[in-house]
Computed example of a mutant assay.
Amino acid sequence: MRNGSVNGRADADTVALKALGWLAGQDDLLPVFLGATGTAPEELKRRLSEPEFLVSVLDFILMDDAWVIAFCDAEGLEYTLPKSARHALPGGEEAHWT
C-alpha cells in the first residue's frame, strides 16, 4: 500500500481487517454495524475470510466521512485507502449503470 492505493487482494484484505479492528473498538458504532449487516458478535471471527463481509465493513465505514477520517487517522492510512481496498476485493467493484 502506497500513494493511497491498494496493490492487490492482500492489501485490500489488510485494510478491511484493520477497518474491522478499528470498528470493533468503537463502542458506539459496532452495534450499529452489527445491526446493519445482521451479523452477530460471535460471527465476526468466522467471517473474517469472506470477501463480501470485508466489503460490508468498508461500505459501512465509507458511509460517513468522519468515520473514514477517524479510521485512517487511527491507523496512519491515507483517506483514499478504504475505497481503494473496497474496489480491490471480489464483489467490491464499482457498478456502472450506463
Rank of each mutant, 00 (worst) to 15 (best):
L54Q: 02
D59G: 07
V6C: 00
G91A: 04
A85N: 01
R2S: 14
W97E: 11
A85T: 03
L48Q: 12
D28M: 13
R47L: 14
D59F: 02
R9L: 08
D27W: 15
G21I: 05
S49T: 13
A85V: 07
Q26T: 06
L23C: 09
A70R: 02
D27I: 12
A88D: 13
S56I: 00
A74V: 09
G21D: 13
A40D: 06
W22T: 06
I69D: 13
P41S: 03
F60T: 01
D27K: 14
K83H: 13
Y79V: 04
A24D: 12
T14D: 12
L29G: 09
E42L: 09
L44S: 05
P31D: 01
G76H: 05
A36C: 08
A74C: 12
E43F: 04
H96W: 11
V57L: 00
L44A: 13
D64C: 07
G35L: 07
A24H: 12
E50L: 06
S5W: 13
A70I: 04
W67C: 05
K45D: 15
A66C: 10
L77M: 06
A70C: 06
A36N: 11
L34Q: 09
A66L: 10
A95D: 06
D11H: 04
S5L: 15
P51F: 00
V15L: 06
A95S: 13
K83Q: 14
L30M: 15
A88P: 04
S49A: 12
R47F: 05
R2P: 02
R86C: 01
F33P: 01
M63G: 11
A12Y: 08
F53P: 04
R46I: 10
R46K: 14
L29V: 02
D59T: 05
P90C: 09
F71S: 01
L20E: 04
L30T: 08
E50F: 01
K83W: 09
D13P: 03
T98Y: 15
L29F: 08
S49H: 12
N7I: 10
A10L: 08
L77D: 04
D73I: 13
N3F: 12
